Amino acid sequence: MSQWPDTRILDLLGIELPIIQAPMAGATTAAMVIAASNAGGLGSMPAAMLSVEQLRDELKGIRQHCQRPINVNFFCHQPPAVDEQRAQDWKNLLQPYYRELGVDFDAPTPVSNRAPFDQVACEVVEQLRPEVVSFHFGLPEKSLLDRVKATGAKVLSSATTVEEAIWLEQQGCDAIIAMGLEAGGHRGMFLSDDLSSQVGTFALVPQVVDAVNVPVIAAGGIADARGVAAAFMLGASAVQVGTAYLFTPEAKVSAAHHQALRTARERETAVTNIFTGRPARGILNRVMRELGPMSDQAPRFPLAGGALLPLRAKAEADFSNLWAGQAFTLGVESGTAELTRRLAEEGLAKLLRR
């Protein structure tokens, strides 16, 4: 019998440890998902940057090495209407960098895209039947959500406010990820784009726990056993950990990102929209300092990144997104399986000693 004070997530998802490896698009690999799930937690494969064929291949490969529950994560944004003037104004703002780095300003602007959950993605879920399906930026339309639930998958989604959590429960979410402002990567906000509505994990989690009946998963600023224990003390049934997994050999991060995670100071993260068009937390670099980090001129998500891609190819550290949560300095070098087990074992030990 589990010694955890709240076993609702363990029972709901069929996992042994209340540790969810966060889906980090671009950094998560199949090897990370396999290791996290086989260790007893829940590995999460992000789908937003994968084609349908790539997603299908990744999931089939994972199944060859892991028979335990896995999570597949999808974005639920609405693709923006084309705004050629805004795109050109944004590129014009970046023109001095093009000139400095010797990049052809008149060349066609690359497309930076993220795939939202749609009919075709839903068919992959129906075919391969992951045990858990999670969403970011709300939920898909009801007909698609009903099809996901009909596969037997448990549905999770991120809430950054109490209002979002209540809405998600009303739409049928089986559990809610309470995402504090400390979290790295894209904010899951979807009912409002007002950043002043965003609060920290310690404030958000207990309020969400009090507002909904489904179990709550704490996310944001959790990178060691102390964070795990604190989340349970606040009423969470599990934690979702992201940045700490970027220190594992299974993570796929650029050389610049790898270096920044290990050398930046704890105060050097900020929420920025200049890389994609939506607020996301990352380590400060040159373009964030000089343009923002928030800019009203950035094209809508996910189009802002296209004009930065040629600059990134020339000076990666200065012009690429270095996603990280505020607790990134707590990261330690270890394997995914070891990290998953350590977070659970040491977190539980702290809870039992109180």
Results as ranks from 00 to 15, higher is better:
residue 51 S to T: 14
residue 243 T to C: 15
residue 5 P to E: 07
residue 268 E to L: 04
residue 15 I to A: 06
residue 198 Q to A: 10
residue 56 R to F: 07
residue 319 F to H: 02
residue 43 G to Q: 05
residue 242 G to W: 12
residue 77 H to Q: 08
residue 59 L to Q: 08
residue 110 P to K: 07
residue 127 Q to H: 08
residue 32 M to K: 03
residue 246 L to M: 10
residue 329 T to F: 10
residue 296 D to V: 08
residue 294 M to T: 00
residue 82 V to I: 15
residue 72 V to T: 08
residue 216 V to M: 00
residue 241 V to N: 01
residue 218 A to H: 06
residue 184 G to W: 03
residue 258 H to K: 12
residue 37 S to R: 11
residue 108 P to L: 05
residue 130 P to A: 11
residue 294 M to I: 13
residue 51 S to N: 05
residue 115 A to I: 15
residue 236 A to C: 00
residue 317 A to N: 12
residue 304 A to F: 02
residue 165 A to Y: 05
residue 339 L to R: 09
residue 25 A to V: 13
residue 128 L to M: 07
residue 234 L to P: 12
residue 22 A to D: 05
residue 8 R to E: 06
residue 221 G to M: 01
residue 253 V to D: 05
residue 186 H to R: 06
residue 33 V to Q: 08
residue 248 T to S: 13
residue 51 S to L: 10
residue 29 T to S: 08
residue 286 R to T: 04
residue 209 V to P: 03
residue 276 T to S: 13
residue 46 P to T: 07
residue 322 L to A: 05
residue 121 A to N: 13
residue 192 S to L: 12
residue 180 G to M: 06
residue 101 L to F: 13
residue 45 M to Y: 08
residue 318 D to L: 02
residue 113 N to L: 13
residue 208 V to W: 15
residue 80 P to K: 04
residue 93 L to A: 14
residue 30 A to Q: 12
residue 64 Q to R: 15
residue 194 D to Y: 07
residue 42 L to D: 06
residue 206 P to R: 04
residue 49 M to Q: 14
residue 109 T to I: 11
residue 251 A to Y: 01
residue 86 R to N: 04
residue 300 R to D: 15
residue 63 R to A: 13
residue 345 E to S: 09
residue 283 I to S: 09
residue 291 L to M: 11
residue 309 L to H: 10
residue 103 V to M: 06
residue 163 E to T: 12
residue 289 R to A: 11
residue 8 R to N: 05
residue 346 E to H: 01
residue 62 I to T: 03
residue 160 T to H: 04
residue 94 L to S: 01
residue 104 D to Y: 04
residue 167 W to F: 15
residue 348 L to I: 11
residue 166 I to G: 09
residue 8 R to L: 00
residue 6 D to Y: 05
residue 185 G to F: 00
